[in-house]
Amino acid sequence: MLKGKQKRYLRSQAHHLRPMFQIGKDGLSATWLEQVEYALEKHELIKVNILQNSLVEAAEVKEYLSENSDIEVVQTIGNVLVLYRRAHKVAHRKISNEVAAL
């Protein structure tokens, strides 16, 4: 669980990012989650955009992630979610080292 200071730092780091994934009319799936987890292993912090034609809401995405993974939702603004997970490989841990220091 992230502290408030850590979430603020992550939000500031995510500000300039563009959404890396989209959720469309197909909704959420195990394959989508695998791809998000792979991207988080490399980047640790990503944005996900929920398209207008999607059948899922941001709250449903948060619930799905909390039930099926250890990914944390740092921020939700409209249909854009900021996701964070510490990388398992030490070589990819850039942001998580900063977060741990806070």
Score class of each variant (00 low, 15 high):
M1G: 12
M1L: 07
G4I: 04
G4M: 09
K7D: 01
K7H: 00
K7N: 04
K7P: 05
R8W: 04
L10T: 07
R11I: 14
Q13I: 03
Q13A: 13
H15C: 02
H15L: 09
F21W: 04
I23L: 10
I23S: 04
I23F: 04
I23H: 07
I23D: 03
K25M: 06
G27I: 15
G27V: 14
L28F: 00
L28S: 02
S29F: 07
T31P: 00
T31K: 10
L33Y: 10
L33V: 14
L33M: 09
L33W: 13
L33K: 06
Q35T: 12
V36W: 03
E37S: 12
Y38I: 06
A39C: 03
L40P: 14
K42R: 11
L45Q: 11
I46R: 03
K47V: 13
V48S: 01
L51N: 09
N53P: 00
S54T: 07
L55C: 03
L55M: 05
L55A: 12
V61E: 08
V61F: 04
K62L: 15
K62E: 11
E63M: 05
Y64W: 07
E67L: 12
N68K: 13
N68C: 03
D70R: 14
D70W: 00
I71G: 10
I71W: 03
E72C: 05
G78C: 00
N79H: 05
V80G: 01
V80R: 14
L81E: 05
L81Y: 04
V82Y: 00
L83F: 15
K89Y: 10
V90Y: 14
V90S: 15
A91D: 11
H92M: 11
H92P: 00
K94V: 13
K94G: 11
K94N: 10
E98V: 07
V99H: 07
A101Q: 14
L102H: 08
